[in-house]
């Protein structure tokens, strides 16, 4: 027969014994501890878009498609430019024909099945262009959902896809709140902006940044306080897209307006 004291003692030992193996199974790995700490190297690429400067020429989209061998005619693109036209009656018309691969050359706004919308210039209160690309989030949801470890983030913060390892399940395409991922029309693997990793690693800028004649797109290292892009991000009014998702996007926007989605 067991008395109450003994019962309490034993049940505590058992509870402790059950809890212990869970932590004991986690093998102490100094390499991983170091990796998970903040010291991830001294480069962290960030992107800065100045909406005021963009004219919607789409040369960035063209350069990106050629530089990165993105299928020219398929309706896929790693970066695109959106047009926002706000009218006096409070309506916002948004379009991005072919991702602005050929720029915006007409005042007619592509409203998909509703056809081309011809807005009277006198009714327009504001119109502007917003370039979009992968946000290379600090907490990339697309990477978390990958079941096979085919997509990952490098120490410089660039989110990449391992084409030989991707199984094409599409979780990442669904997981990205910014819709920047798509399927490669020929390889049938997930595709996305690489932030021109091959160029940045050689000390160059991304193809879209080099193609922009207006300085609307810039790339910089947020860990370098002397970087002009870092200075703008840290001292001026910048915004990010869909902050409420908690993804910590690393593409910053100057001249952001509330209509931008």
């Amino acid at each position: 027969m067991m008395n109450r004291r003994e019962f309490c003692k034993k049940s505590m030992i058992i509870a402790g014994g059950i809890a212990l193996p869970l932590t004991a199974l986690e093998i102490f790995n100094p390499k991983r501890l170091r990796a998970e700490k903040d010291g991830k190297g001294n480069v962290r690429w960030v992107f800065l878009v100045d909406i005021h400067k963009c004219v919607g020429c789409g040369l960035c989209v063209k350069a990106c498609k050629i530089e990165n061998d993105v299928n020219w005619d398929a309706n896929v693109t790693r970066t695109w430019v959106e047009r926002y036209v706000v009218t006096k009656d409070g309506h916002t018309y948004i379009d991005s024909p072919k991702g602005a691969r050929d720029g915006f050359t007409t005042q007619k706004i592509d409203q998909a099945h509703a056809g081309l919308k011809d807005v009277n210039p006198d009714d327009i209160t504001k119109g502007y262009f917003v370039p979009k690309l992968c946000n290379h989030c600090e907490n990339p949801p697309c990477v978390q959902v990958c079941p096979v470890g085919a997509t990952y983030q490098t120490k410089e913060g660039v989110v990449l896809v391992d084409r030989s390892w991707c199984i094409g399940c599409g979780y990442c395409v669904m997981g990205c709140p910014y819709g920047v991922r798509y399927f490669h029309p020929e390889l049938h693997v997930a595709e996305k902006c690489t932030l021109c990793y091959h160029r940045l690693c050689q000390g160059m800028k991304t193809a879209c940044v080099d193609a922009c004649p207006f300085g609307a797109r810039r790339v910089g290292n947020i860990r370098d306080p002397e970087d002009p892009v870092t200075k703008i991000i840290t001292t001026e009014q910048v915004n990010v897209l869909k902050e409420e998702f908690g993804t910590k996007p690393q593409v910053f926007y100057l001249g952001y307006s509330m209509e931008v989605k």
Binding site: Q144, Y152, T154, D162
Partner: peptide, 29 residues
């Protein structure tokens, strides 16, 4: 295995990074 960004974001084949670095540059500025 686990690389620079830890379990959640860095679980990958590290040679994939080198493959992306080798991608040819077309626009030379």
């Amino acid at each position: 295995g686990i690389h620079d960004r830890g379990y959640m974001y860095g679980w990958h084949r590290i040679s994939s990074e080198a493959e992306w670095k080798k991608f040819p540059v077309k626009y030379k500025t």
